Simulated assay, not measured.
Amino acid sequence: MKALLCHQFGLPETLTMSDIETPSPGPAQVLIKVKACGVNFPDTLIIQDKYQFKPELPFAPGGEVSGVVEAVGSEVKHVQPGDKVFALTIWGGFAEYVLADGHKCLPMPEGMDFVTGAITMYTCGTSLHALKQRANIQAGETLVVLGAAGGVGLAAVQIGKLMGAHVIAAASSDEKLKLCKASGADETINYTKEDLKTRIKDLTDGKGADVIYDPVGDQYSEPAVRALAWEGRYLVVGFAAGVPASIRLNLPLLKGASVVGVFWGAFAQKQPKESFENFQQILEWIKSGQLKQNIYKQYPLEQGAQAIRDLMDRKVIGKNVVVI
C-alpha cells in the first residue's frame, strides 16, 4: 500500500511517499481502507516529535479517518467488513489502509459522506467536551472563542450557539471573521487590529466573558484571562501559535476563575460512555444540518505534506482534508 511517511522528525517537506506492506488487524483492531483523513494541529506536532504521543519511526501522520472496513480482529463485533466507519487513529491516516483500535472506530450514520466523517471526531469531539464537561457552559452565558476560524474554533462557535451561549468569535482577519459570523457568532473581534481584553469588556458591558475557549495560546492568553468574568472558566485547548502561554496565577485568584485543561483524547479513552453520548449529540446536530464545518481544501495523498504545511502557515479557514 502507499503511505506518506515520516522517516525522520522534521517539517512537512521531509515526508515521503512510500510503498509498505498492508498491516493485519490484531484481535481488538479494525483494518480500514481509508477514503479521507482530516488534517489537524496535532499532525504538525507529531512529525516534529513535539506531541504527547510518540510513534516509532517510520510512521504516517493523520489522526482521524473515514473509510470502509477491510478486516476485523476476533474480538471486534460492532463493525464488519464492508461497513462505512470513522475512527480516531492518532497517527497512520495518510495511507491507503490504517489500523484502528476497535473502541475508537464507529459506524458512520446513513447519509454521511466520507469527507464529513473524517473531520468530525477531533474538532467536534474536542469542542463539545470542552464546553459541556469542562466548562459546564449554561444558556445565556458569554463564550469567547479564540482562533475561531480554525477547525476546533468553528466547531466551538457552532456548538456554543447550539448550547445557548452568546458567542464572541476572535480571529486574525476580517475574512476569517466573516465566516465565523456566517457560522453563528453574535459578535466578532479581530485581535490583530483590536485590543482583545478591551473589546471583550466592551462587548460584555464590562462584565467579562464567562467562558474563554483558547486553542491558540502565546500572546493572547493573558489578555483573555484578564477579560474573564467573576467565576469565569478559561479553557486550555491547544497552542496553535506555537508557544504555551505563561499566566500569572494572581489573575484567576482575583476573579475566582478556573483554568481548565481540555484533553479530549484522554477523555474519550478514560470516559468512553460520556464520550459516546457526546457523539450521539454531535451526529444528531450534523444530521439536522445544525452543525457543519467549512472545508477549506481537499488534497490527494501525494499532497498531504502541503496540507500540513498550509495548516502550519495558518492559511486554513475551517478544515482541510486528505482524500485517498
Rank of each mutant, 00 (worst) to 15 (best):
G111Q: 02
K319C: 13
N278Y: 01
P61S: 02
L235W: 09
S24Q: 13
L162W: 08
V34C: 03
K33E: 15
E110D: 13
F263C: 04
P244A: 10
A100W: 11
A257M: 02
A118P: 14
F86N: 12
K132Q: 01
Q48G: 03
K50L: 15
N320E: 13
A209H: 12
L88G: 14
N136P: 07
T44R: 10
L177C: 05
V115S: 10
A148D: 07
R226Y: 05
D101F: 02
A95W: 09
G151A: 12
W285I: 14
M312Y: 01
L146A: 07
Q158L: 07
I212N: 07
F263D: 03
V69W: 07
G147P: 09
A118E: 11
E187A: 09
A60V: 10
V243N: 14
E175I: 04
Q52S: 08
M17R: 01
G92F: 05
A305V: 08
F9I: 00
D83H: 10
L45R: 09
T44P: 05
T198H: 12
I324E: 08
Q138L: 03
G10S: 05
K273A: 05
I47K: 03
N40R: 01
K270S: 09
V225T: 05
W264P: 02
K54Q: 15
A118T: 02
I212C: 11
L45P: 06
F263W: 11
Q280L: 13
G93H: 02
G102W: 14
G242T: 07
G153Q: 09
T188Q: 03
K161C: 12
A305H: 00
D310M: 10
A224Q: 10
H129P: 07
G232C: 03
E64M: 00
K35Y: 03
F239L: 12
I308G: 12
V260W: 02
A149N: 04
V34G: 09
I324W: 02
E277I: 02
K292E: 07
D83V: 06
A118Y: 14
T44L: 05
L128K: 12
F279A: 12
Q306W: 01
G304P: 15
E70M: 04
D310R: 05
E231Q: 11
D49N: 06
E13K: 00
A87Y: 13
E302M: 03
G10W: 07
V68Q: 01
G111C: 00
W285S: 07
Q303W: 04
D210V: 00
V323S: 08
P58M: 12
A100M: 13
G140F: 07
L177V: 06
P12F: 00
L253K: 08
N278P: 01
G238N: 07
L57I: 13
Q269P: 00
L11Q: 15
Q133F: 06
T14L: 08
I46M: 08
G318H: 15
K270Y: 08
V144Q: 07
G62D: 00
